[in-house]
Design a binder for these strands. Structure first.
Lengths: 225, 225
DNA sequence: CATGATGAAGCTTAAATTTTGCTTAAAATT
DNA sequence: AATTTTAAGCAAAATTTAAGCTTCATCATG
């Protein structure tokens, strides 16, 4: 699940990002409304957390423009204001929920879960061949045997399996898994593909990740014999 | 014992939380029905205290949905209404008891004790491996031997063991055990984990608290040989 | 038509760097 | 005096970089 936070106070922004990443969300940060709107329009997020009072473009304006552009992404407002009019105003502008600062992180998580509930069909294990991935607990199994992965390894494998039978280009991978949004020549992907293949092979789970030369990678369900 | 309070009036909510914590209950708070239901569904509580008149989803609806989901947790209603029909209505919806506001804290405690009596009588102890925790007396035993812990050490261990076999993220720990809601830059947790591990090890109770790198900690029941 | 030279793309490995957690001692708080 | 918190140094793990190696497709040459 991908979340975009639009928040200018570095303290709050950092705290949110860390906490949400511990919960296995992929978190992007924008420090003002303009950049936030730009991010939201050019990427697919599952949820937006937007502060009301931010530079360049107010949170409410971001919200309005997103809705005008046809986006249906759930938006959760953060606000210091808590008069009735402000709340009404925010929800009218297209927000789905709001929280007044300061708030408890647990409550925020609960509100996020409410927004994402429809997407999370309770028991959503990812499968590919003999591989089972539990995104909730961060566990990967090859049959019965658990495979221990580092956070980056897990993120990459999860992304590939979520898109199984579809080609994942290098640029999409670097964008979704590494949060790098500009061109750069790095061979991290290759290295991590090697790591993954090695660990999968050690668990007798081979020939799952295939290379598409010049493009990227694909996870293919092996034909059962 | 863990209690969830679903109550939107901050005054009453705060008063209840404080009072119950002095009685050594671990108290969570939700400010409306939607999030209350979400908390109740995603955590294990020993008792719910639910206001009748709350935003988003009425107390009675929370109750109904919980019962529909198969939950047997005792639910204690708070209500300003006290006509016979209302009481019948609430109990029909699956509540176990109710109190009309304003109420005496002592009476509330008494009613809570009634609801928890069954749990206390059986076995109120928390267990994990050779460890036994008595939340009522704040005692910890490794087999027969008692381990002396400071209040913070106890609170942390109790939280971890209550959530055994589940990952406790750093954010959740700092929030539940330390009541800190916005500080991401402290290493108290690490220090206390070290304290605990040292004391547990001294009592031959090892490999109970495991580290999940980048996320937090988990207490795992050691596989019996 | 076969062959092997060539370069681009991907693979592998090791080393460097960064991040994260552990431990300790000292400082602050109760 | 006991407990809690901070801060700093150390250690381990994860991540990234960089270099050499392999594979593959292409194409010129015999």
């Amino acid at each position: 699940m991908r979340i975009l936070i639009i928040e200018d106070e570095p303290g709050i922004a950092g705290f949110l990002k860390e906490g949400l990443e511990e919960e296995y969300f992929a978190v992007d940060l924008a420090y003002d409304g303009k950049h936030g709107l730009d991010f939201a329009l050019t990427n697919e997020y599952d949820l937006l957390i937007v502060d009301w009072m931010i530079p360049a473009l107010s949170g409410i304006e971001v919200c309005r423009q997103l809705r005008k552009a046809g986006s249906l992404v759930p938006i959760l407002f953060l606000t210091a204001k808590d008069t009735v009019e402000d709340v009404v105003f925010g929800l009218d502008a297209g927000a789905n929920d709001y929280m007044k600062k300061p708030f408890e992180f647990e409550e925020l998580l609960a509100r996020i879960r409410v927004q994402l509930r429809s997407k999370n069909s309770t028991d959503d294990m990812l499968r590919a061949g003999m591989l089972t991935i539990n995104p909730a607990t961060h566990q990967v199994f090859a049959g019965e045997e658990e495979i221990a992965l580092t956070p980056k390894e897990f993120a990459l494998l999860e992304y590939l399996v979520r898109n199984k039978e579809r080609v994942c280009t290098r640029s999409r991978i670097i964008e979704h898994v590494w949060d790098i949004h500009f061109d750069s020549d790095t061979s991290v992907i290759d290295v991590y593909i090697t790591f993954l293949r090695r660990k999968l092979e050690a668990a007798d789970c081979e020939q799952l990740i295939h290379t598409i030369r010049g493009v990227g990678y694909i996870v293919r369900e092996p034909a059962s014999p």
